[in-house]
Amino acid sequence: MIRGGEMRARCRFERPVPQKSAAGNAYNGWVEACTVWGWLKPMSGREAVKEGRLEATSTGTLRVQAGPKTRPIDASHRVWIKGRVYVIRGLPIDTEQRGQEIDFVIEAGVAS
C-alpha cells in the first residue's frame, strides 16, 4: 500500500469524445475525466526503427487511490503525467485486492 505522501505525480485522465471536423470527418477529441495524485513506477524504455523513423516508448505502472472518480477509468482513456501523455494498456488492476488502490499499465510514445 502506498502512503498519500508517496503519490507525487499529478495525473489528468481524459476520456475520448466523438467529434466532427468542419469537413464532416469523425475523430476523437478528449475531455478531462478527473485529476488525481498517483504514484508512477517506470518499468522499461525502448527504441525501435519503424518506417525509417526512430521511435522511443516507455512503459510503467501508475497507482492511484480507488474511488468514484477513478473506478470508471479503462483502456479507452489516456493520462497526462508531467507534460507527457500515456495510453492505458488493459484493464485496471486491484493488485492488493483491498479495493483501496488501482494499478494501470501505461505506455508513452505511442498513438493515443
Rank of each mutant, 00 (worst) to 15 (best):
I81C: 05
A66F: 05
A33H: 15
R63W: 01
G83S: 09
C34P: 06
K41W: 00
G52N: 11
A66C: 09
T35Y: 06
Q19T: 13
V49R: 14
T59L: 02
P18C: 02
P68A: 14
A56V: 15
W37H: 09
G83H: 03
R78Y: 00
G52R: 04
A22W: 07
E51N: 15
S58R: 08
K20F: 14
G83N: 06
N25H: 07
R15I: 02
I73A: 10
K69W: 05
I73N: 09
R15P: 01
A75P: 00
T70E: 07
A33L: 11
T61P: 02
V17G: 00
R15L: 12
W39L: 15
R63T: 13
K41T: 13
A33R: 03
C34Y: 07
W30N: 08
E47F: 06
V79I: 04
G24P: 00
V36T: 11
R53V: 14
V36L: 07
E32N: 10
K41R: 14
R84S: 15
E32Q: 14
V79P: 06
K20H: 07
K82W: 07
V36G: 03
W80F: 11
P18W: 00
A56N: 06
K50I: 13
R53Q: 09
A56E: 04
P16M: 02
K50H: 12
R78N: 03
R46W: 11
K69S: 12
W80C: 04
P16R: 03
L62S: 09
V31S: 14
Q19L: 13
W37S: 13
I73S: 07
P42H: 05
V85A: 12
G52F: 01
S21P: 03
G67C: 11
M43E: 15
S76F: 02
G24N: 12
G38D: 06
V64E: 10
W80H: 10
S76R: 01
W80S: 09
R53H: 10
K20N: 14
E51F: 15
W37V: 06
V36Y: 03
A26C: 02
R15F: 08
P18H: 03
G60H: 04
G83M: 05
V17L: 08
P68W: 02
P68D: 11
A33W: 03
R78S: 04
G38F: 01
V36A: 11
P42Y: 02
K50C: 05
A26V: 09
